[in-house]
């Protein structure tokens, strides 16, 4: 990467160099949460608008093979094609968080994720936090602290807290508030959501006891 200085000089004149195309791009060192690595020489995948793409989604540990239009969001596929209505639709524009799911353990908005892009990723929805009919620790904490009212934003709130705790098992108050700040609640249950998140951290750490 010793070309930097040279290229920087050119850059200041807005110059273009063929040198370095491909060879010098890319960071390379840190990589690959995606799980799907395809050789650079492999042909790109092409789906025309009038076609459906055959994809396999890994949702809550289960594989779902299906046909999707390229434009279908993960949210639409989860709810309307797979019946996983624990993931809610609020705005379909990344502004409310009701559709929050975990993708490779990280909270994301399913409304701004194309289903076709979710292929090969590990997707966890609210249903995936259950063990059979038993609630997961974050869900239990939400019940204990009445961390919801109408309950419609709740699945997204729970997934955001779940994602927060997977990354940071012992969050501070400030970290909890920040972690919950990508999910709107019009009923205004935020304060109880913070308490529930704190309680869930305890439950996950195996510390039961009274809330």
């Amino acid at each position: 990467m010793g070309k930097d200085s040279d290229e920087n000089d050119r850059a200041s004149h807005g110059g273009v160099t063929r040198r370095g195309f491909i060879a010098s791009v890319g960071v390379g060192a840190v990589v690959a949460a995606t799980g799907v690595t395809t050789a650079e020489t492999a042909e790109p995948q092409v789906v025309k608008p009038e076609e459906m793409a055959k994809i396999t989604l890994l949702i809550n540990g289960r594989k779902h093979r299906m046909l999707v239009e390229p434009r279908w969001s993960l949210l639409y596929v989860l709810r309307e094609k797979l019946g996983l209505t624990g993931t809610k639709v609020g705005c379909e524009r990344g502004e409310c968080g009701a559709c929050t799911v975990l993708v490779n353990g990280v909270p994301r908005y399913a409304c701004l994720t194309l289903a076709i892009e979710a292929e090969g990723q590990e997707i966890t929805t609210l249903e995936g936090l259950m063990s059979g009919e038993e609630l997961g620790p974050v869900q239990v904490a939400f019940v204990e602290h009445d961390a919801f009212q109408c309950g419609y934003c709740t699945p997204g709130q729970i997934m955001a807290v779940e994602g927060l705790l997977r990354k940071n098992p012992h969050p501070s108050d400030a970290e909890i508030r920040l972690g919950a700040s990508g999910n709107l609640c019009r009923c205004g249950a935020y304060l109880n959501i913070f308490k529930a998140a704190d309680r869930a951290a305890h439950l996950k750490a195996g510390k039961g006891g009274k809330p």
Partner: peptide, 15 residues
């Protein structure tokens, strides 16, 4: 709801 488009998933920058 988005209008439709064709989709190309590439494996290299050249693609």
């Amino acid at each position: 709801m988005m209008p439709n488009f064709s989709y190309l998933r590439v494996n290299s920058l050249e693609q």
